[in-house]
């Protein structure tokens, strides 16, 4: 019973990591890609870790996996926040379909929303 549950968690994790990677390839700009990279990959890795914990139980390996899941849950949002904030300040372009950008407007910097003519997204 437990091993079936462990397998379910492991597979859920693998599928979400795959979807996160797919999102990384499909989304049009850095900011949307970060969305896929943070959410799907966090849950995916946490799922794999919980699967490992269920498989091995209360021994050094299982507890380490559980602690790793907790640390990932705390650190991934912080690092994604730092990456996105740094990119915005450095002026990495937003996708042309972006409707508003309060952050850049409030800093008083010129808009960094991509205007038409960007080739890659046209495909």
């Amino acid at each position: 019973m437990i091993s079936v549950l462990a397998l379910i968690f492991l597979w859920l994790g693998v599928v979400f990591v795959l979807l996160g990677a797919l999102g990384l390839a499909r989304f049009p700009d850095l900011y949307n890609r970060m969305q896929a990279a943070t959410k799907c990959v966090t849950l995916g890795v946490c799922g794999i870790m919980i699967g490992i914990f269920l498989r091995s139980g209360f021994n050094p390996l299982g507890i380490k996996a559980l602690l790793a899941a907790v640390f990932i849950l705390f650190t991934v949002p912080v690092s994604s926040h730092a990456l996105v904030r740094g990119s915005l300040i450095a002026g990495v372009r937003l996708w042309k379909g972006t409707v508003r950008d309060d952050f850049t407007a409030d800093r008083g910097a010129p808009s960094i929303i991509d205007n038409a003519g960007a080739g890659e997204e046209e495909k």
Partner: peptide, 23 residues
């Protein structure tokens, strides 16, 4: 819920994006 939402977006052909930064 967040993950299923993003997963559906990744898999949908049109992507359904309307991004922006709000406060």
């Amino acid at each position: 819920k967040a993950n299923i939402d993003v997963a559906l977006r990744v898999l949908s052909p049109g992507l359904n994006l309307k991004p922006g930064i709000v406060k």
